[in-house]
Design a protein around this nucleic acid. Structure first.
Lengths: 209, 209
DNA sequence: CGCGAGCTTGACGTTGTTCAACTAGAGTGG
DNA sequence: CCACTCTAGTTGAACAACGTCAAGCTCGCG
């Protein structure tokens, strides 16, 4: 990328820190920036008219987040909220667009990243469409273990309510299901912390539904 | 676009006709083509391990379908099946990629189209996540009316089973809900044909859930 | 006329939500 | 240092929603 193109991006970008719990994008708000999540974990939430939340996906940096507003659209479809302290770079959409159009390979890379952020969300939704809670919770746990907490850099800190929003069920149901999985020796509960003991069994449960 | 780039695309493309019911892409198969749907209606299906289907979205041409395999990935995540006779152009992924990288504005346009195909699917999933069947069916009907059957070019021809796969419920439940909506005067049933009588009421139902 | 696919209806049992009550830990202020 | 309150977690009971099953129906087609 030529120096002046790079310079345009750099000049219009804006490095920020967010604390755990802070809202980075708010659903419905206008936005003319993309996010590059250097470090940290964020959730994508959707709040419906009746006030219920669902978490569409949870991602960990480093990752480009163009998905909050489905890329070059102006209105944020989802809220993006920090689950851990985050370092985020806001990139001006117009500047990026200008540069990326000139350099198709960057556009392609962005395209790829955006879709890879959404793919798990779509599988999560499919799971939700024809599995019952038992299997959905298994799916959520497997996803989190493989993608978010795999390297031990962060420890599990989702509330029961957040799990329920991810699995699209009531928080009581999450509690019952977790304690059932605990009794069966598939996971080990220790306060808010959840450890997977028998990943194969969990995959089996996910498969059956 | 320079003549030789255009020529590369043209030479590697392949115009096809598909009849109603034919499978264009099969889930799990390798693919190195994108589809341009000139004319017709297709559904995106996902079949899970237990043999159950869900329809993630239904789209009408003209439209670029890069979403079957989430664009430049090789394996089809979904099946694409013709719901009406279709005219489809297969575009070689590698050729397109080569050309599009050189011309970022085409890449951007493709990106945009792909995301716009997925956006309704995501909203459908969200609907599914926290509405009950009554509201979900309302959503499905509204979506179909606004996007597929709006111009009267095609008439409604989904089976009850297909509606149930779109709304992720049992086909009996679709039947009950439709006949309930019929009695309430919101829609008019006439064999397989469904007409929306009171769109405002339907939106109300969709809102409540 | 008979067959099969899709449609319809009702009964029944399971799943999951809602509600209410209770517990535990963390933060606050007297 | 102890009440107080607030939040998160937990449990169980009652109820509604939904899927499954079984039976009968209609229509188009051989």
């Amino acid at each position: 990328m030529p120096q002046d193109d790079f310079e345009l991006i750099r000049r219009t970008s804006n490095q920020m820190k967010y604390s755990k719990g802070e809202t980075i994008y708010k659903q419905g708000a206008k936005s003319n920036s993309l996010l590059f999540l250097h470090k940290g974990i964020v959730k994508f939430c959707y709040q419906s008219t009746d006030g219920r939340n669902i978490i569409t996906t949870i991602v960990k940096g480093p990752k480009l987040l163009g998905g909050a507003n489905l890329f070059f659209k102006e209105i944020n479809i989802f809220s993006v909220v920090a689950l851990e302290d985050c370092e985020i770079c806001h990139i001006d959409t117009r500047a990026l667009r200008t540069v990326a159009v000139k350099h198709g390979e960057y556009m392609l890379a962005m395209f790829d990243q955006t879709l890879s952020t959404f793919q798990p969300a779509i599988f999560n939704f499919i799971s939700l469409a024809h599995k019952q809670v038992y299997g959905r919770i298994a799916d959520v746990l497997i996803y989190l273990w493989e993608n978010i907490y795999s390297d031990g850099e962060y420890s599990f800190n989702l509330t029961r309510k957040e799990i329920s929003e991810f699995a699209a069920c009531s928080h009581e149901n999450v509690i019952n299901t977790l304690s059932k999985l605990n009794k069966e020796g598939v996971i080990a509960l220790n306060g808010r912390n959840i450890e997977i003991v028998d990943i194969e069994k969990l995959r089996e449960i996910s498969k059956i539904g």
